[in-house]
């Protein structure tokens, strides 16, 4: 198991946790605001999707930072013919 494979596993598990966290936030909103009325339901949906979108972008930024770090400290197979 190399760092690249571990990073790929991290990307999937962190994505899964983010989905569950966004849904937990929606559950808190539903329990706090209730589900009566179109406006409240709309607010819940908008906040829920915004939270998911924001979490996905944060996930991308952390993944990118880790990816660049692993890529700049490569292991075997990077110094072969034509390697940089």
């Amino acid at each position: 198991m190399d760092k690249g494979f571990l990073l790929a596993i991290y990307s999937v598990i962190s994505g899964w946790i983010l989905i569950l966290m966004s849904l937990s936030l929606i559950k808190v909103l539903i329990m706090t605001l209730g589900t009566k009325g179109f406006l409240i339901a709309l607010i819940e949906v908008v906040v829920g999707f915004s939270a998911l979108g924001g979490a996905l972008y944060l996930w991308y930024l952390t993944l990118r930072a880790l990816f660049l770090r692993v890529k700049s400290s490569p292991g075997k197979g990077h110094g072969g013919p034509g390697g940089t």
Binding site: D2, K3, G4, F5, L7, A8, S11, L63, F67, V70, K71, S73, P74, G75, K76, G77, H78, G80
Partner: peptide, 11 residues
């Protein structure tokens, strides 16, 4: 995904 998997070593 392929770039992530090959970020540490060529495969």
């Amino acid at each position: 995904l392929i770039a992530i998997l090959t970020s540490y070593e060529g495969k």
